[in-house]
């Protein structure tokens, strides 16, 4: 919807990693013109919520501070797990219920 345009550059955009608007704008000015690169430059979106809140705002900022239009700014690549999964849960499985053929794993790109 609306990005209000008062400067307020110290406002936090990524709550999980505590990344400010200013840090994100700097990254964009240094060439980070995708959500993926903003993440890799600043850590915004690297936290527990995986950018569920801040991705949209970062897309808006990229549109505002780079030459890209919104339809050129997709989301970051999604890597599993989509939701935080405890290590003890990830490690709790029975081979026959949870492991797939090695061939299937090799095909994943």
């Amino acid at each position: 919807m609306h990005e209000n345009n008062t400067d307020n550059n110290d406002v936090i955009i990524c709550r999980c990693e505590e990344i400010s608007k200013e840090e994100i704008i700097n990254a964009i000015r240094n060439g980070a013109d995708t959500v993926t690169l903003v993440k890799k430059y600043t850590r915004a979106g690297m936290g527990l919520c995986k950018g569920k809140t801040c991705s949209i705002v970062i897309q808006r900022l990229i549109a505002e501070y780079s030459s890209k239009s919104p339809d050129q700014i997709p989301f970051d690549i999604e890597r599993e797990p989509f939701r935080p999964i405890k290590i003890s849960v990830m490690g709790n499985y029975e081979d026959e219920n949870a492991l797939v053929d090695h061939e299937i794993c090799l095909k994943r790109k």
């Binding site: 690297m46 995986k50 999964i85 290590i87 003890s88 994943r108």
Partner: peptide, 11 residues
Amino acid sequence: LADASIIRAWG
């Protein structure tokens, strides 16, 4: 580490 949450895996 049992209760630590995994947030991402990559190759």
